[in-house]
Design a protein around this nucleic acid. Structure first.
Length: 470
RNA sequence: GGCGCUAUAGCCAAGCGGUAAGGCGUGGGACUGCAACUCCCUGAUCCCCGGUCCGAUUCCGGGUGGCGCCUCCA
């Protein structure tokens, strides 16, 4: 398959280093608050990528970190610790906060049919690895101590800004409000590997290190966790586009300096979910969660469909109007699939043709929008139900929209007339009689009454249909 | 200011040199007591200006707009 590689700015054929095997790393959440649906867009698209790689027969090992320490609101020694802030906000300990929001994150993922990675590693579980790598970086001359902290020296690199053609002078410092420069740094782009001097006397999580009691910087965890589980070479690193700089740039700097060779070949970045006012972000305050969508009556999988109907490398504007659009499309899709039966012989030629439509789409830089179209093409084909269902089941291994399950549920609801309470059944009989007598006012009144009792009456081509309200 | 991504119908969106997929909505129709469901029909000189080419939405150059990053972010 072809993937756009942020490192080269080109669509490249994805060729893993070891034939048949893929080592894949994903930057996980900082567990100081709920994930919002913008965060989850990235995880949805990465999930599709992982599943498609598996679909094509590759053996994927995927690792994700959980940031539960060291993520400051600024990368100098000045920012607040996000975890600590969360703990203060909720009057809990940092570890309680981490535990709570880690669980919440995976619960949201489960609702969105996002598979849990093979390895999930909290940063606090790898302190020894961090110390090992930082020590080596100091030894090799890539890191220095200043003001009690250990910094990575970006001036020692041949090339630091790997994702864009920039020099240090091009960068404006303090563009964002509230960012202070750390005077300990030798170079503007240097970043902290290990903190010992911190203005937080109440920093709860501290570890012994050769440089004193302290805690790790944010960037070091991803490099170390990746290397611990996936070795010296990484095929694919994923994350949100906002992490390209500085986070991923710093990861590359420290990893390659430590290893002495190229580290990761392909970089996959998902673009943002925006509102009319720009990027949805936690620091701006207002943000949408999966639970909130559920409260408003949306199936989380409708949001997944919404994400899949756009390309991952395009910013996507969220609005309820757009989500409603997806909700209707989802419902219709499910209804169409529910009508299919597993009858007939598999039509091999048509199966292959339609399958090709799907794989061509996904092979083309994970074009999920086109993949959804391939799904519609299946439904519109004049082939038999067996062939269609076989294809849909295969597509669903990648799309994971829960279409088969939802259509089965729909069929169940349709055939569950025996579960209708006797009083409802009685009303339906009354309504039938009223309709027969052309007393439509009475019939409509009864229908309203039934609706109040939680059931929906519809006249279909097959006759009166009664379903329980969702 | 620098760097990156992007610009296609009311909305979402595909398209990778040979004269514009798909979804939602709208309007019309079939069906229906009504409604819902379902089915059929319905819409675009592809941001602008140059260039390359027999031919450009597609490639190149230059604009303009949107979004992102430039030490919190997925």
């Amino acid at each position: 398959m072809k993937l756009f590689n942020t490192l080269t700015h080109e669509r490249e054929e994805f060729v893993p280093r070891t034939p048949g095997k893929v080592s894949m790393y994903t930057c996980g959440p900082t567990v100081y608050h709920y994930a919002h649906i913008g965060n989850l867009r990235s995880y949805i698209m990465e999930d599709v990528l992982e599943k498609y790689l598996r679909f094509t027969g590759l053996d994927v090992k995927r690792v994700m970190n959980i940031t539960d320490v060291g993520h400051l609101t600024s990368d100098g020694d000045t920012g607040d610790d996000k975890m600590l802030k969360g703990a203060i906000r909720e009057h809990k300990t940092v570890m309680e906060i981490a535990d709570f929001y880690t669980k919440a994150f995976f619960a949201d993922c489960a609702k969105l049919n996002i598979k849990t990675p093979d390895v999930v590693q909290p940063a606090t579980g790898c302190i020894d690895e961090f110390i090992k790598v930082i020590s080596s970086l100091i030894e090799k001359g890539f890191a220095y101590e200043a003001g009690g902290n250990i910094y990575f020296d970006t001036s020692k690199l041949k090339k630091y800004y790997v994702f864009g053609d920039v020099t240090e002078d091009d960068l404006e410092v303090g563009v964002r409000e509230g960012v202070e420069e750390d005077g300990n740094k030798r170079n503007k782009a240097d970043f902290v590997l290990w903190f010992t001097k911190s203005k937080f006397n109440d920093q709860e999580l501290k570890w012994e290190s050769p440089w004193g009691l302290g805690y790790p910087g944010w960037h070091i965890e991803c490099s170390c966790i990746s290397m611990k589980y996936l070795g010296e070479y990484l095929d694919l690193h994923c994350g949100g586009i906002d992490n390209a700089f500085p986070h991923h740039t710093n990861e590359i700097a420290q990893s390659e300096s430590y290893l002495g060779h190229e580290w990761c070949k392909y970089w996959f970045h998902v673009h943002h979910l925006n509102t009319k006012n720009g990027k949805m972000s936690k620091s701006k305050g207002e943000f949408l969660t999966v639970s909130l969508l559920e409260e408003k009556g949306y199936d989380p999988l409708v949001y997944r469909l919404f994400c899949l109907s756009s390309h991952y490398r395009k910013s996507l504007v969220f609005s309820y109007e757009n989500l409603d659009n997806a909700a209707v499309a989802y419902k219709k899709l499910v209804a169409k699939i529910a009508k299919l039966t597993d009858e007939g012989e598999l039509d091999k030629a048509e199966y292959d043709r339609l399958m090709k439509g799907f794989t061509d789409a996904l092979d083309n830089d994970l074009n999920t929008a086109q993949g959804i179209t391939a799904l519609y093409d299946v439904l519109k084909s004049d082939t038999n139900g067996k062939t269609k269902l076989a294809l849909i089941r295969e597509f669903e291994k990648v799309l994971s929209l829960g279409l088969i399950e939802a259509s089965a549920k729909m069929n169940e609801a349709n055939s569950a007339e025996e579960d209708i309470p006797a009083e409802i059944a009685e009303l339906i009989e009354q309504r039938k009689a009223a309709r027969k007598a052309k007393d439509f006012a009475a019939a409509d009144a009864i229908r309203d009454k039934i609706a109040e009792m939680g059931y929906i009456v519809e006249e279909t081509r097959q006759g009166t249909k009664v379903t329980k309200k969702a």
